[in-house]
Design a binder for these strands. Structure first.
Lengths: 226, 226
DNA sequence: CATTCCGGTGACAACCATGTGACGATTGGG
DNA sequence: CCCAATCGTCACATGGTTGTCACCGGAATG
């Protein structure tokens, strides 16, 4: 899936330049020309990163930054600030307000790309694995090692629980039997791939109605659907 | 219980030097060579202090620092930064981002120890762990080192008490045998994991009716249920 | 339409994880 | 110096768990 970036600037030339380069690099880009629009789009689209010009009419970059941080929906989106002022005070202020990086105009597109890439990479890395997975009435609690349906616990063996967890964590994506063997059983392929089938069967049997989430993709593997 | 320190550096010599000196001084030390590993270990082990080199490949110390501060699980762990640059800006930036102290290379091990000790003393003082845990009729009094059931004291050995305490403090969360060995026995894994079983058995025997709180999760570990 | 391929199913034997009792080593106090 | 307490390890029993297999029905394939 393409990573989405929101570019906020009031100068059409800058927008165009940045947009072109980011799209070239394979990102999905949307733009906003002022603070209000920026906040609205940030909330509705929850982009993976925001490129934000400090100099804007009405609401400047710092204010937008602050506003974004105050809203839970946007609080964690990394922000790259663009500014004409190279003064140190700006850098510190920007970082304090929650910007993740800083670029002073004039900047080269290549430099912008580098920063964006780096920040996105870092953010992916620090994304912490979720402790709970919830899909409708199905709840999987990792640290408690409990799965439940409509708040009623489901008795699962260790392997079944792990299998369910792995599938749920990769919801939507098909997992081949080999993939599952590697991730659930860990030591490689001493085990027959058909074993996965048996475990899927037992899992489906035990989780009852929640089995509708477990999809078989003939010829490929299994998939957890939301 | 030994205080645990996580040392993050990419240079093996530095790691070795720091690790040796800290262990000598009675701390339990784990190490990480890069940012991703550092974040992972910080979250999984929640050390009491982190020694962090600023100069690292990929993700530098400032970024790690910031990432640690953004996560509730690691936000309050004190950080001592190591850097080659003595520049003022670095110091200010580092402190702003949440480092608790600062050390410029080359530093003497004695100096590092002093800082670590000082910071830990300050932090321990202001942090008060719960002194009592109560679950129904079961009461665990940490400072008095006494457990009781319906106000009647339960005779426990030091190890049994610690085991019970660790489990109760993480009530609900499954603890693997390895995890328990690390936290209760402290020095790593010289001990057979089955030893945990034996101690659980003795513990259950002694606490009698309260044993209903001690749950076995087959294939995974043990869990304290409320 | 015939054939092949694939996944679901039930049974089963081997295995493994855990509870349990016992034993030797160590330690500290009387 | 001996005894009691504590601890780590081990062997054994047992019941749950697991991997495999044979069989079957339905889906693809030609």
């Amino acid at each position: 899936m393409k990573l989405r970036i929101l570019v906020v600037d009031d100068e059409p030339e800058i927008i165009e330049l940045v947009e072109f380069n980011l799209k070239q690099a394979g990102y999905a880009v949307t733009t906003a020309a002022d603070g209000a629009e920026a906040l609205k789009k940030a909330r509705s689209q929850t982009p993976d990163l925001i490129v934000l010009d400090v100099m804007l009419p009405e609401m400047d970059g710092f204010e937008i930054c602050k506003a974004l941080r105050l809203d839970a929906a946007t609080a964690k989106i990394p922000i790259v600030m663009l500014t004409a002022k190279a003064a140190e005070i700006d850098r510190v202020l920007g970082l304090e307000l929650g910007a993740d990086d800083y670029l002073t105009k004039p900047f080269s597109p290549r430099e912008l790309l580098l920063r964006v890439k780096k920040i996105l990479a870092r953010h992916q890395a620090e994304e912490k694995p979720k402790e709970q997975l919830r899909y409708g009435d199905l709840l999987i609690d990792l640290p408690r090692h409990i799965a439940s349906w409509k708040n009623k616990p489901i008795e699962l063996t260790a392997t079944e629980f792990k299998l369910l967890t792995i599938l749920a964590q990769r919801a939507g994506r098909v997992q081949s039997r080999d993939q599952l063997l590697r991730d659930v059983w860990e030591y490689d392929s001493l085990i027959d791939t058909r074993t996965v089938d048996t475990h899927m069967r037992r899992l489906r049997e035990k989780i009852g109605p929640a089995a509708k989430h477990l999809d078989t993709v003939r010829g490929v593997g299994y998939r957890f659907i939301e």
